[in-house]
């Protein structure tokens, strides 16, 4: 069990006094406003020259961590990005938003969720955070896996699709947005939380904060040095554009619409 230290620590310390770190996943993805084009040869999607931004769910994760720090629940927020060498500017944004420091795990290969989860586990073992907050999904691969996988490998609770988070007495009470409605669960810390859209509204970065962020530390770790096996678990062999729906007809009024739907047997 990797958590021996942390649990010992918690047993002998008043939880409030514990120096809690929050680790946040901060992935860079193609901006959600970009219209994705599949390359004609089916080898990938066009990413040259397109706008890149923080995964929207990760901005929400960072915002939540900052609010918990502001409430005094945590005292340090660490943003983590796994990706190519040019992620520095992206991580500076996370620092400008308010994270205390950043960890950059450098790799030029695309990182699949199981690998990302294994990387996070290594960082968790080193940093011993009380909470890891990730996005519920990265809007490029739409996998929705990394948080759950990390929680499994770490053998700790997971509270996915969080719409509300409260931390008290060594546990997180999380309201989850599920298909049936809102589910409330309690998770003992340390735990993994993944964010849903309505958890909060991320703050805007202010100019002076960008200046301040320049002085904040970014730890750079070579992926290879972590000892995580990096084989591709899934091979993507082809990319295709989605089947197009053909444009239909415009009807002139309500009566015509009802007639058309009745004719199709839909009303």
């Amino acid at each position: 069990m990797h958590m021996g230290n942390w649990q010992e620590h918690r047993r002998y310390t008043n939880f409030k006094e514990l120096q809690m770190k929050i680790m946040v996943g901060y992935k860079r993805v193609v901006d959600y406003n970009v219209r994705i084009q599949v390359k004609p040869d089916g080898s990938g999607v066009v990413t040259d020259g397109v706008k890149l931004s923080a995964n929207p769910f990760d901005d929400i994760a960072l915002e939540e961590a900052l609010r918990l720090r502001e409430k005094g629940v945590a005292d340090e927020v660490i943003v983590v990005a796994i990706g190519p060498a040019d992620l520095t500017a992206h991580l500076r944004n996370g620092l400008a938003m308010g994270a205390n420091r950043a960890i950059h795990v450098v790799t030029t290969d695309a990182v699949q969720p199981l690998t990302a989860a294994r990387v996070f586990l290594k960082l968790v073992e080193k940093e011993q955070p009380g909470l890891v907050i990730l996005g519920k999904q990265a809007i490029d691969d739409d996998a929705n896996q990394t948080g759950q996988m990390l929680a499994a490998l770490w053998d700790r609770p997971q509270a996915t699709f969080a719409g509300k988070v409260e931390i008290a007495d060594g546990k997180a009470t999380v309201t989850r947005e599920v298909d049936a409605g809102l589910e409330v669960i309690e998770a003992e810390l340390p735990a993994v939380i993944t964010t849903d859209l309505r958890l909060n509204e991320p703050r805007f970065i202010k100019l002076p904060d960008i200046m301040k962020a320049k002085a904040k530390p970014i730890d750079t770790i070579e992926f290879a040095s972590l000892g995580v096996e990096a084989h591709d678990h899934l091979k993507t062999t082809h990319y295709a554009p989605p089947a197009k729906r053909s444009k239909g007809v415009m009807v002139k009024d309500a009566a015509e619409l009802v007639a058309a739907l009745k004719q199709k047997g839909l009303l």
């Binding site: 699949q112 969720p113 199981l114 739409d142 996988m149 699709f161 599920v178 298909d179």
Partner: peptide, 23 residues
Amino acid sequence: STTFGKDLAPRVAALLGVAQVSD
């Protein structure tokens, strides 16, 4: 691929040490 399955399947995959195919 409901909130139930999305929450659960990756945790199973990680315990088995395998990747997951979503959706």
